[in-house]
């Protein structure tokens, strides 16, 4: 697939420099981005087959212990679809997630928060969307946790989400939040998105129809990637 990508609408995205999120101040470019039409470089991208996905990869409750013992915490199913801006499913694309454990602690050499590690929780998972763009993970609800920013900042419960799409120019990393979490409105990272309606799109609703009685709750999180321009009237110079 090498149809041109639709130019990114930067207004839906966070601002790059936001004093409320202190680390962004020194890490944001001051000069404008150079906007150009996509080329074959952005229109193609890596393809990952089922060969790289293991049977427990999308089950964070069991994948760290290789099925030996379940992780601690409130069991949840995270599911949804990956679509593009033309509302078409994005099939067979890789989704990776990572998150803190139920106490708000990451299994990472750089996380020193004193909430304990769960010996049965790693915090990473991955899966491929099916032919209709659907995906699902089984995991535990991550805890909120404090982080060094302003005097008393806490991250709302969240799951980091990385998606590829079919072209490298569609690459996206975002975060899923949980309906009803009062910390969402206080989070300076959430607040880097200036449009309230766009923030709402990162908040997954409780989905009782997707839950399993006596087992897990469900949260639905649909993801939209950049689309491709579809027209018979392409005026591209030969060879680009």
């Amino acid at each position: 697939m090498t149809d041109p990508l639709i130019p990114r609408d930067r207004a839906v995205h966070p601002v790059s420099c936001d004093p409320g999120y202190k680390t962004s101040v020194a890490r944001s470019p001051k000069w404008p981005l150079l906007s150009l039409g996509s080329t074959v470089t952005e229109e193609t991208g890596p393809v990952f087959g089922h060969g790289v996905i293991g049977p427990l990869d999308n089950n964070l409750i069991l994948n760290f212990s290789r099925g030996a013992a379940p992780a601690m915490g409130e069991r949840i199913r995270m599911h949804g679809r990956v679509l593009d801006e033309n509302a078409r499913p994005v099939p067979h694309t890789l989704i990776e997630i990572w998150q803190a454990n139920a106490g708000g602690r990451y299994r990472h050499v750089k996380d020193s928060y004193f909430a304990p590690l769960d010996p049965n929780f790693g915090g990473c998972g991955r899966t491929l969307t099916d032919a209709e763009g659907r995906y699902e993970f089984l995991t535990i609800r991550p805890g909120a946790y404090p982080w060094p920013n302003r005097g008393n900042d806490w991250r709302p419960m969240h799951i980091h989400v990385s998606v590829f799409g079919s072209g490298f120019g569609q690459r996206l990393i975002t975060q899923m939040y949980f309906e009803g979490d009062p910390l969402i409105a206080r989070c300076p990272i959430v607040a880097t998105i200036k449009d309230r309606a766009q923030i709402d799109r990162l908040v997954a609703p409780l989905d009782m129809a997707g839950a399993r009685p006596m087992d897990y709750l469900a949260y639905k999180f649909d993801i939209v990637l950049r689309g491709r321009r579809q027209t018979m009237f392409e005026n591209r110079p030969e060879g680009t």
Partner: peptide, 29 residues
Amino acid sequence: TLQETPSQTAGPYVHIGCIPSFAGIDGVY
């Protein structure tokens, strides 16, 4: 048509999801 999902920072623990061995997580993949 739909709008693209907004981005959020990958954060300091991006390695857990993308390069787990770098975070000290071996054996999941």
